[in-house]
Computed example of a mutant assay.
Amino acid sequence: MEMYNPAHPGEILGEEILKPLGISITKAAELLKVSRKTLSKVVNGRGAITAEMALRLEKVFNNPSASTWLAIQNDYDLWHLKQEDLNVTPYRSDAA
C-alpha cells in the first residue's frame, strides 16, 4: 500500500511531543543542546531529522526511538522523491 503524503517528522515532533508536554521550541532546543534555529527549521518542516538529531530526541524524550525518527524522515523523503521525475532508464539485460 502506497502511503499518501506523510507528515514531516518535525510536524509530529511539534504536535505529538512538544505541544502535549507544553515545551516551547526554545526550551526543547536547550534540552537537546541544539540551536533554536536548527530545531525551529525541523519543527516547521524546513529541516530534516538527522541521525544525530534522532538520537538526541530519543535521549531527551525517551520515545519514539532514534530508529523510528529516522524511519519517519525516510518515509517522508522517499514519498516526496517518488513524486519527481528522476529521468532514469531502467536496466534491461541483453540476454533476455
Rank of each mutant, 00 (worst) to 15 (best):
V88L: 14
L86I: 04
L39P: 04
K41S: 14
G47L: 06
Y91Q: 04
E52Y: 03
R92Y: 01
N5D: 15
I72K: 12
G10R: 01
A7S: 08
L55F: 11
L78N: 09
A51N: 06
S40M: 11
W69D: 07
N63D: 15
K19W: 02
E58F: 10
L70A: 03
K19A: 08
G47D: 07
A29F: 05
M53P: 09
W69E: 09
N63E: 15
T50H: 10
P9Y: 02
N63H: 14
K59W: 05
S93N: 05
H8D: 01
N44S: 13
M53G: 09
L57C: 09
K27D: 14
A28V: 03
L18F: 06
N74T: 10
I12A: 00
L21N: 11
I12E: 00
M1A: 04
V42G: 04
L32T: 11
E11T: 08
L39Q: 08
K27L: 11
E15L: 07
S67V: 12
L21R: 14
E84H: 06
L57T: 10
D85A: 03
A51R: 11
W69L: 04
M3Y: 15
Q73R: 14
V34N: 12
E58Y: 11
K82A: 04
A54Q: 09
G14Q: 07
K33N: 15
K19C: 00
H8R: 08
Y91I: 07
Y91P: 00
T38C: 12
D85F: 00
L81W: 10
L32D: 07
L18A: 02
I17D: 01
I23C: 02
V43I: 15
K59Y: 10
T68N: 05
P6G: 03
N62T: 13
I72L: 15
P90W: 03
V60L: 10
Q73P: 09
K27N: 09
N87R: 12
Y4M: 07
A95W: 01
G10L: 00
I12G: 00
V34E: 11
L39R: 09
A96N: 04
L31T: 06
E30Q: 11
L31F: 14
A96R: 04
I23S: 01
I72Q: 11
W79I: 02
M53Y: 05
D75A: 13
P6L: 05
G45E: 09
D94T: 08
R36A: 02
E16F: 03
R56V: 11
T89N: 10
K82S: 09
S35M: 12
S40K: 10
V88Y: 07
K27M: 13
R46N: 14
E11G: 00
S35D: 14
V42S: 03
P9V: 02
S35F: 06
D77M: 06
L70Q: 05
P9C: 03
N44D: 08
A7D: 12
D75H: 04
A29C: 03
L13F: 00
A51H: 02
M53N: 11
L21T: 00
Q73E: 08
L32E: 05
E16A: 02
L18W: 05
L78T: 15
K37R: 14
S67C: 09
V60R: 07
I72R: 12
N5Q: 08
L21E: 07
I23T: 06
G45R: 07
V60E: 15
V43N: 05
A54P: 05
T26F: 08
E30W: 03
L32N: 11
L32Q: 11
S65V: 13
S40T: 13
